[in-house]
Design a protein around this nucleic acid. Structure first.
Lengths: 150, 150
DNA sequence: ACACGTTTTTACACTTTGTGGGCAACTATA
DNA sequence: TATAGTTGCCCACAAAGTGTAAAAACGTGT
């Protein structure tokens, strides 16, 4: 369990998103490298430790050519940008990234979510909606949840 | 029957929730480990002994991909954070957790409820309403209750 | 009902983290 | 070459989290 938990942080007018200190600690202690590869996925931004990103890249490279591989390259690999932290623990998101993730100028509220080997960044309102949908789905499956031990 | 009973405890201004000593005793005597994984569920917070959480995780991991699995990851797994006790028997809840559970700054009153293999934490007012709804439902099923021996 | 030990709450001081703003260097454009 | 926009760096303040101590509340057994 590397990255875990949800954090209600902010993005400032310049597009700098602050990342929880916990996550930075994981980066430097586990990976020894505070850089992140930030790409766009599923309406939000996904930030991978460089090491993890390399692993993903290898796997994609070894796929044989197919429309799926092309789509992965186009939608996930190409948009990825390397980011590092400023002294206040923030990463600078590009305009394209903010645009994709619905983080336009006035919006300050984001959620930073640990997701095992990567860090997700969402517009907070969007994330709340996704969570609501997820919870509605869970409510229709009480038995399944019980069986899983929840 | 591991965790059992309701306790009207408090959460302080910094978001530290005190957990009944009884539950801590169960943690150290049964599990030999006082850490908890605290996640968000159903409007409150659910705290699992690490051992129990691992079991749940294994089961979820072994599910095949599906919308239900995605919902579980989004709503239950990702928000989970490991907590341990301070010297006064309290756990620090994150801002996001308090926000989710309706435990904003001024609210001090919580209920800590034992629920077999996990500990639930609720805003006390919210819990009172849920209980009321539950009781209303029970009134519509007197025969079922009688058959159960109540 | 009382005294004792345990548990819970309150209070305060201190550290860390997060946020906003200013300034200068750099880029791209016209 | 001027201009506007972007990026990085720095500082300072505010908010949040951590730790400790002591008071208050609670429960137990006598």
């Amino acid at each position: 369990m590397l990255f875990q938990g949800e954090f209600n942080n902010a993005i400032d007018a310049k597009g700098r998103a602050s990342i929880p200190a916990k996550f930075r600690d994981v980066l430097s202690s586990v990976f020894g490298d505070e850089r992140l590869m930030v790409t766009q996925n599923d309406g939000g931004l996904a930030a991978y430790p460089i090491q993890e990103w390399e692993k993903v890249l290898e796997k994609v490279k070894s796929m044989q050519a197919s429309p799926l591989k092309d789509a992965i390259n186009l939608a996930l690999i190409s948009p990825a940008v390397e980011c590092s932290f400023d002294k206040q623990g923030r990463i600078q998101l590009s305009k394209a990234q903010r645009c994709y993730a619905g983080l336009e100028s006035e919006i300050r509220e984001i959620v930073v979510v640990g997701s095992i080997n990567k860090i997700m960044i969402w517009n907070r309102a969007m994330h709340a909606e996704m969570r609501k949908h997820a919870e509605d789905l869970l409510k229709t499956e009480p038995q399944a949840l019980y069986n899983l031990g929840f």
